[in-house]
């Protein structure tokens, strides 16, 4: 272990600490996980009832079931709580010692994400496997190529949601409302990222507007890639959209981080 390269050792240590801390807060992790399961389960229940024996915008009952199980997993793998952490670090003065260390604080945040997601997403996979034993509707066709593509899309979505959350958290340098802004973002994403319904069910005008934002790429696209709903051209545009928006959010993060630190240190002020 001590012969591993520096960054591997750093990440191993950061993830270990995050994992150990999470272990102490099992109860709250279970709560967050329950919420992560309940929301799609409720949505599924509603659409299940509406679909009846027919279809809604091409979605039959089984399609909804697969969609919301995939959503549950992808959401857990891509969710990011970083704005809450950062807001706390900045307001409680816990950023100080982090800035005095020769390691960018974002690495600690990334490690937290990895530790949290490994645990919760792992649990969801187990739940999904168990449910699929008794409920054929939620079974996915065996398609390793598609799963590999999905893995790439999930990684991009997770990176994008990380930068969105981190950047929003950095707003705490300017305002005490950083987490409120993040809540607002989560509220909008409820509709535009496919959390409440597949995007195909949105009114055409809303769907067209959503397509111009990052919301579909942070959740709906990898979900539809996993269920098989995204095919051909949609796969290409999905990845292009993800890359473009990831780039935009990385740039936003850069600007916010440098400006925020300058404001914190009041450079020139």
């Amino acid at each position: 272990m001590s012969r591993a390269p520096l960054w591997l050792r750093r990440y191993a240590a950061l993830i270990r600490n995050a994992w150990l801390v999470d272990l102490q807060y099992r109860a709250s992790i279970v709560l967050w996980l329950l919420w992560g399961v309940t929301e799609p389960a409720v949505a599924l229940g509603i659409w299940w009832g509406i679909a009846g024996d027919g279809q809604v915008a091409g979605y039959a009952r089984a399609d909804f079931a697969r969609y919301f199980f995939a959503l549950m997993l992808v959401n857990q793998l891509t969710i990011a709580w970083d704005s809450w952490y950062l807001d706390g670090w900045i307001r409680e003065g816990e950023l100080n010692f982090r800035l005095a260390r020769p390691l960018h604080p974002a690495h600690e945040a990334v490690a937290e994400n990895i530790a949290y997601k490994a645990r919760t997403a792992g649990m969801i996979v187990v739940v999904w496997l168990v449910v699929s034993l008794v409920w054929p509707a939620v079974r996915l066709p065996l398609a390793p190529g598609r799963w590999a593509l999905t893995a790439a899309a999930v990684l991009l979505a997770a990176a994008m949601r990380f930068f969105i959350s981190f950047t929003t958290g950095l707003l705490a340098f300017w305002t005490t409302r950083a987490t409120a802004i993040m809540e607002l973002h989560a509220g909008v994403s409820l509709f535009l990222s496919g959390r409440l319904a597949p995007l195909a069910l949105l009114p055409p005008a809303v769907a067209a507007a959503a397509a111009l934002t990052w919301f579909p790429y942070m959740l709906a696209f990898p979900v539809e890639l996993l269920t098989g709903a995204a095919q051909g051209r949609a796969v290409v545009t999905g990845f292009v959209g993800q890359l473009v928006w990831l780039g935009v959010w990385i740039a936003a993060y850069h600007v916010t981080w440098t400006r925020g630190l300058r404001r914190y240190g009041a450079v020139g002020g």
Binding site: L6, L20, R101, P102
Partner: peptide, 29 residues
């Protein structure tokens, strides 16, 4: 440098100090 600020500090509250030491071992190589 080392900076020790009186109020907010680097020891991870929920873990034994040794975990923070190990983390610093990795951070500072």
């Amino acid at each position: 440098i080392a900076l020790v600020l009186g109020n907010r500090q680097q020891l991870v509250w929920d873990l034994p100090p040794e975990e923070t030491f190990q983390l610093n071992r990795a951070i500072y190589d």
